[in-house]
Structure formats: C-alpha cells, structure tokens
Design a protein around this nucleic acid. Structure first.
Lengths: 222, 222
DNA sequence: ATCCTAAATGACTCATCAGTCAGTTACCCG
DNA sequence: CGGGTAACTGACTGATGAGTCATTTAGGAT
C-alpha cells in the first residue's frame, strides 16, 4: 500500500439509504440466476458490497428479502399498464394487442420474468409469499386484461365470453413463455422466438374473441 | 404380539424387485407435496418402509430418484394419448377437444401434475433433468397436439396457422392450470373450476382455429 | 441343519448456510 | 479535536440433511 492509504481509505462507508436498494438488486439477480434455495445470503451480501450482518440490519429473513425483490420487480410495469388502460382511446383489439406487447417488453423480456418462476416454485414452502404475489401481482394483471376484454364486449367488438376464464386463458401463454425462458430455454436453445410467439398468440386471441355477424355470441353467462 | 412372534417375525424382508417401485411412489408423493429441496430422503425411505441405506442400493442420488419419478408419472398418459391419436376417426375439432379433456383427466387432475412444477423449478440446478423432461415429456405432448391441429389444417377444417407456435399456445393454458393447482390454488381456494376452464379454453381455441368461408385463411396477419 | 451372500440397516461424517452478536469503526455534532 | 452512536463487520452457532459403510440378518442353496 501507499502512505496515504492507511490514513484516508476507510474500510467501509455508512450508507443507510442506499443499502436496501443495492441489497434487493443483488438478491434479485442471484435469486433469478440460481433459484431461492440455492442462493446464499453471503453471496447476496458480497455482491451488494457488504457483509451478511448488514443484510440483517435491513431485512428480517431470506423470505423477507424475496418479498422485497418481487415488490421492486413488478410494481413499475403494472403501474404503467394501468396508466395505459386508463388513457387509451382506440379499439379493444388494439388495446389488447398493446397490453400483450408491453407485457413482453417490460416484464417477459427482462430478468424480472424469472421471479414468477421463483414464486411458483416456493409457493408451498411460503404460503404467505404466494398470497402476497397473488394479491399484488396476479390480481392486478388480471384486472388489466379483464378490463380490456370487457371494453370490447361492451362495445360489441368482442363476443360475450366467460370473462374470468377467458382472461386467464389470455394470460396463460404469456406466463408460460416467461417460465420457458427461465427453465428450458437454456437447455434447448433457439426453439422459440418471443416476437413470433406473442404475435401468434395475439392473433389467435383476437380471432377467438371477435364478434362476427350471425354467429353464436359465446358462453358468457355460463 | 403373540408367542410365535419373537421367533418367526423377521425384522425386515428381502424384496429386491418391489423396492424400486415403492421408493419411487413414496418419492413422488413427497416431492409433489413438499417440493424437491424440502423433501428428506429419510422420509422417502420411511414412507416406503425401508431405511435410507436401502434407498441408495437402488438409486444413485436424489436427482436420480426424481428422474425415475418423472418417467413413472408421465409415460402412461402420453402413451394413451398417442394411441388415441392413431386410432381416432372424426373431425379435428373433436380430436382436439378429446385430447384436452384427456390431458386434464389423466394428468392435470392427478397428483402427477405437480411434477411439472418441480421440473420447472429445478431446471436451473439440474440442466440434465430439464433436458430429459423436455425430450421425454414436452416433445411428445407437443407432437400430439401438433398432429391433431395439422390434421385439421390438411382437411381444410382449420386455418393455416403458424403450427409450432399455435401448438404451444394451445398447450399453455393447460400447463398453467396444472401449475396453478399446485401453487396458488391452496392459498386462494375456489377461484378456478377446472371443468369450466378447460371448456372455455377448448371453445376459444376452436374458435381461433376454425376456417370460415370468405375470411383470410392464413396466419391471422392484419 | 448350516453356510453363504446379498439385502437391509442406521449411526456416522461432513459440508452447508440461515441467522446471531460482541466487537469495530466511520462520521456527525458540540 | 475527541466523544458518542449507530452503521457495519465477520467469526460463530446450531440445525439440517445428503451420502457412506461397517455390521447385521433374511432366506435360498447345499
């Protein structure tokens, strides 16, 4: 070392405000990369540039850290989707296509998509986490898609499908593509082009929903 | 027990042929119930009525045991599906509806559905397992659905959709319902009726696929 | 009856890691 | 400048569970 180092270089800094965010970011990366059980809190702390003790100054437990990562990862794209829904002025078809496109661009294509897999995998071990994810993420996403479809049904653009189920079925291919990307995609590369997948899904969905003169209107009030 | 017991009752029996099957059955139950990491091999052995040492006479490792459980769980329903496909004589619509119905009855509604979740969750930690599942289960299921859709396209009953993608999109809601049942269903009960879900999916899918006179026959582009 | 061997046992090792806490030190305030 | 405090450290504990292996014994062979 040099002469100044032993005097000036502090071994660490006090950064109370920045720590939680840095820890959550590190945790998100590692949870997504390795899975929940296989991620060591020592590694999370190291990546965030602190020791494990510091981690426990800001989070109660490993589960608490995961919950924070989920909240962090999904709140923004969901908020964006809700804004678009509120302000969009166009056909229900275009709205639905836009929502699917945004879903992929802002969640599916990002690393956050991996969080979905985590939650599904850990839901048995952490029921409270599952409930949290259900209420804060799934419900909001479902409301978005429901609202777009409902708009089309009201205007007569779509058939009167059984909304709570049709809406789930509209979401399923998007969720499964996210899961695919974080499970089989690495073992079996280049099998799915997300662009084409989402485009095909949107087309099939619209085709399934569009009202056509002289046809059965759907099974809406089953 | 009785007077003869102390002489005649053996502490254990030699049952070389029956052990592997019993161990796999026990492992499947516990893996599905608790997840892979949370399942202790001591418990698997206990449920199968043997000690952990015996387990290692028949399986190399915990991963090996999981692989055996997967092979055991899916080979029969897949085989049944392939038989039906080969012998079915009817419209492509009816074939597709039948396949979805069988999928739910023979896999989705049974405990085996939980294995899908396991594999997705552990795919990062065990890439070889992921590849195995992809080749032995996913590929075969995809071929089934593809073949049914292809039949409809050939006969002019269905539109000429982008088959590799449309087929994935047809499977996605089924897979996601299986995952739902083994993740959020226990925390948020009674939200989804599988019968109605599968019925709605089948209707939407057929609606999306059916060729109609005077409409664009092709890939649903605008 | 008794020998032989392989099926079965279960106590053991050893590595892992979440969570703790007594001690250390940056940095603010007077 | 030098005291106080709260941010930070990292060695430690305690629990857990996969995988091992020396020992026991069932049960067929002779």
């Amino acid at each position: 070392m040099n002469a100044t180092a032993k005097v000036l270089e502090p071994r660490w800094e006090r950064r109370k405000d920045a720590r939680p965010g840095e820890l959550v970011a590190a945790a998100m990366d590692l949870f997504i990369e390795k899975g929940f059980a296989a991620t060591r809190l020592d590694d999370v702390a190291k990546r965030a540039g602190v020791s494990k003790g510091t981690l426990y100054l800001y989070f109660d437990s490993k589960e608490d850290l995961l919950k924070a990562a989920i909240r962090e990862g999904y709140s923004e794209p969901l908020h964006h989707g809700e804004q678009v829904l509120a302000s969009f002025e166009g056909s229900a078809e275009d709205l639905l296509r836009l929502i699917l496109k945004m879903w992929w661009e802002e969640v599916g294509a990002t690393k956050q998509a991996g969080l979905t897999k985590l939650v599904i995998g850990e839901s048995q071990n952490f029921p409270e986490l599952a409930r949290f994810y259900h209420d804060e993420v799934i419900q909001r996403a479902h409301k978005l898609v429901s609202a777009a479809m409902e708009r089309g049904i009201q205007s007569g653009e779509f058939r009167a499908v059984n909304l709570p189920y049709a809406q789930r079925i509209a979401c399923a291919p998007m969720v499964l593509l996210m899961l695919w990307k974080h499970s089989f995609a690495c073992c079996v590369p280049n099998t799915v082009d997300p662009q084409e997948y989402v485009a095909t899904h949107a087309d099939m969905l619209i085709h399934a929903l569009k009202a056509r003169p002289g046809e059965d209107p759907g099974r809406g009030d089953k």
